[in-house]
Design a protein around this nucleic acid. Structure first.
Lengths: 152, 152
DNA sequence: AAAAATACCATGTTATCCCATAGATACCCA
DNA sequence: TGGGTATCTATGGGATAACATGGTATTTTT
């Protein structure tokens, strides 16, 4: 299976269009769909996105819940209600919706970050902050790990 | 199968007409019907709505109940008695009935929220309250989910 | 006849399609 | 190997189509 890797910085034009990095686009197109599935990330000021496999994963998650429970009602509102399938135009671009832009505080430029099964879309400054924080955490963790695993 | 996703905010005009978001409309039209099946949501101040598959699902649900039970009587009153099939006009609009409007406390604007198999129609302020609650609950539940679903 | 429902038309905004360009990369062949 | 050409990609712009929304006319109901 193809993974979303690396990161790419692209511009948003006056009409609100962004090119999806061609590497990512070709993965999205593999299942024949012209859609990019996305939703506000649960724990970051970013947009989570992916293709059919990601959306199927989420649909499957919903199917496992008791149909008439509160839990299902809340989850389907938060997941289905906030998810979108953005159409990818003939030039490989999408238009991010207002709620998504708000959530990720995006203005005129974004960074696509591959995360394997999915990818994220960030406002560039926010991403570099996040990345710094993440790297700091990794170093801290590594100190702990290195006591047990000398190989790292 | 096509799912109802995302949310849309539309206006109600002086005649009481609302446009059904085109994404939703095209799903409703898939079975060829020009109708929107709907009823007051059982546990929210909102309108539940969908197409043929939703009404069939509810019929099936009723069939599974003991024919002479109180439970069946209550449910059929609560659901069928209050259900409506609203005609969709040539421009893709419906007129919400007075009882539905009352139940959801709707005035001049509504939010359509996709929930997968069905969607809901909310008064905007009420919805944002409900959404906050839903997001809170999802975050609380999230530890449980994350053990089974790494992708999210 | 009055009121409500329906069909029909008009408009502004937004999305979508199509084409153009510039920079980068890959390709080819002498 | 070097130089040129084709290809791909991101990005911009204009033309077109779709959509939400408002209004008017016509029909149906009561």
């Amino acid at each position: 299976m193809q993974l979303f890797l690396s990161k790419f910085r692209n511009k948003i034009d006056q009409k609100g269009r962004v090119s999806i990095p061609s590497q990512f686009r070709s993965i999205l197109f593999q299942d024949g769909s012209q859609k990019m599935f996305c939703y506000p990330s649960l724990d970051a000021e970013a947009i989570d996105a992916g293709g059919d496999s990601l959306s199927r994963e989420i649909y499957a998650l919903m199917d496992n819940l008791d149909p008439y429970s509160d839990e299902k009602d809340f989850l389907s509102t938060a997941l289905f209600g906030l998810s979108e399938e953005l159409r990818i135009d003939s030039d490989g671009r999408v238009i991010l919706s207002e709620p998504l832009i708000q959530h990720a505080q995006i203005s005129h430029e974004v960074i696509f970050v591959g995360l394997g099964q999915k990818f994220q879309i960030w406002e560039p400054d926010r991403f570099s902050n996040y990345l710094q924080e993440a790297q700091k955490r990794v170093k801290e963790q590594r100190l702990l790990l290195s006591k047990k695993n000398k190989g790292l």
